[in-house]
Design a protein around this nucleic acid. Sequence first.
DNA 1: TATTATATCTCGGGT
DNA 2: ACCCGAGGTATAATA
Lengths: 256, 256
Amino acid sequence: MYREFVDINEALKFLKESIDLKRVTVIIAPCTVEYYGRGSSSLSLGERVILIKQDGALLIHRPTGYQPVNWQPATSSIEVKSGRGVIEITAVRNDPREVLVAKLSPPIKVLSCKLIDSAGFTKYLDESEVRDIILEHPEVLEDGLRIVEKEKVVGGLSVDLFGYDKNGNPVLIEVKRVRADREAVLQLFKYVEEYKKSSGVKPRGILVAPERSRGALELLKELGLEFKKVDLRKLWRLKAEEVEGGSRSILEFSRK
Amino acid sequence: MYREFVDINEALKFLKESIDLKRVTVIIAPCTVEYYGRGSSSLSLGERVILIKQDGALLIHRPTGYQPVNWQPATSSIEVKSGRGVIEITAVRNDPREVLVAKLSPPIKVLSCKLIDSAGFTKYLDESEVRDIILEHPEVLEDGLRIVEKEKVVGGLSVDLFGYDKNGNPVLIEVKRVRADREAVLQLFKYVEEYKKSSGVKPRGILVAPERSRGALELLKELGLEFKKVDLRKLWRLKAEEVEGGSRSILEFSRK
DNA sequence: TATTATATCTCGGGT
DNA sequence: ACCCGAGGTATAATA
């Protein structure tokens, strides 16, 4: 249902109903926005897209860019009122306490729909999938490597993969599916330290990723850690062979 | 301008025009979405909001939640075509190479507007602001602390604040405006290590934040680092006194 | 261009 | 409720 308003009170009535009935509400109107909570911001008058979702999530988008300029997550409660020639939308969230106030002026365009969407969303190639492929194919890292546990808890933290090399040394493995940077190295270092502390034995630490930054390389050296480059496409092909026709999408991707 | 389409070709014509003229285009329609690039995903049929912005940013939102289920940043080029009873929107981005294909079926609702928004956006209380207040008021951390540099470069990294304590020991300070976790401690640790390496002297490392996680506390102890809790409101009040009426918004916030 | 660090990050999973 | 880690993170600053 689409409506366009110049009259504030008519707009108010329609917006209230749309939000109360938990419809997806898309508004295009000139507005100002104030926010305070974890941070604080002020946005002066301009035309924006305001998207209010069925669970109360609210996003305010300027005409460009990926990110909303202001927003409130789904936990917030939304109130609409009118006064002084504007519509005031107040979205409040507790824990953390955050308040967002948008003041809309005419012309106010509103598109309001109940959306039906229970479809499945499948994501391939996330980190856990890469990890599981390595778990099944430790030979891609090195010969004789035996992986005995995934998400092994070491000092309250969980290491992606844990096992022993051909000489029986414990090995901690941190897997990244994107270029590994200093942060990734530090994460591995933390696991190695925890393991050393709790077992008394210094393990090998291997960072596994398709690439690494220059800084990561230096830090690896400094901290006595190792790096093993993996080709994600090859890993996916290994997996695709396993499922053998079970997942055409993965096969398709691996050809790209 | 709002239109609703059952006929594919009419919808195609309108959408093409809207996107070519670089209007903000809001579409509500049943659709499927395929994506591959850094990752890969598949979303089956359901009703969604598709937002195409004036710079080519594209977001596909399901009826709930803050995040878009699929998207393409502003760097992408967008093509629209029709066939087999659907409208196909293809958004391609290079570097990294990523492809998103959305297939829309009727009824297709489209709201198309050129938005004018050159307004200023002001953000208060970001990390750099907190850092600068501490720079001006080192006494909030400890007596006799002398801060001599901000964003000091140590081994290619830049430390938030650098100075000397009353005994002349070098001090590296990492500032967080949210609860500090293990990541923050590791970041500070990295600076301390770099400083030690390049100067041969072990500096004190102080993590400054309004709160810290339990894990952060443990890691601080292990790595021989310190923590100093700060009250953000007090800091802002210090700043507000300085500017003395210059920024009412900050004062307002500090009362909240 | 590559790297680093921030974000009102959000979100999910675990304890 | 807290904590941790992933994300197709995006985005800005910096070298």
